[in-house]
């Protein structure tokens, strides 16, 4: 059940993100990239297998049965990925504003397409 919900969630994020990425306005593109990065982050977590009630960190008593623990690596990866995508999105926002200021339009090509 969890798997289906997560898969639908990732699919919805990815599809909406992809659609927005292909839109002509810079703001739509940036929202699309954010949604896509959510989809990717969820995907990375899912790649570490889905568990409930399983800690990723070993308990104090020492290493027990590895089957009782979740894989900590994808969680570490997803943290890094979140930080990096956050930073690059912020950077893209600055460029987006600069492009808006310099070209006078929010079209991704910097000029309006003739009607």
């Amino acid at each position: 059940m969890t798997e289906i919900v997560l898969a639908i969630g990732i699919g919805t994020f990815a599809a909406s993100g992809m659609w927005l990425l292909l839109r002509p306005r810079t703001f739509q593109v940036i929202i699309g990239l954010s949604l896509l990065s959510y989809a990717v982050n969820l995907f990375i977590v899912a790649m570490g297998r889905l568990h409930t009630d399983m800690p990723p960190v070993l308990e104090k008593a020492g290493p027990g049965d590895p089957a009782l623990y979740a894989d900590p690596l994808p969680q570490a990866l997803v943290l890094t990925a979140i930080v990096i995508s956050f930073a690059t999105t912020a950077l893209l926002l600055v460029v987006l504003l600069a492009a808006r200021g310099l070209t006078g339009t929010d079209h991704v090509d910097g000029r309006e397409t003739p009607p």
């Binding site: 810079t26 593109v29 990096i84 995508s85 893209l92 460029v95 987006l96 492009a99 310099l102 991704v108």
Partner: peptide, 15 residues
């Protein structure tokens, strides 16, 4: 800036 915007978006998607 116009070219840079494309460059950044394409590379973010690639990432």
């Amino acid at each position: 800036v116009r070219a840079g915007l494309h460059y950044i978006v394409v590379n973010l998607a690639a990432s």
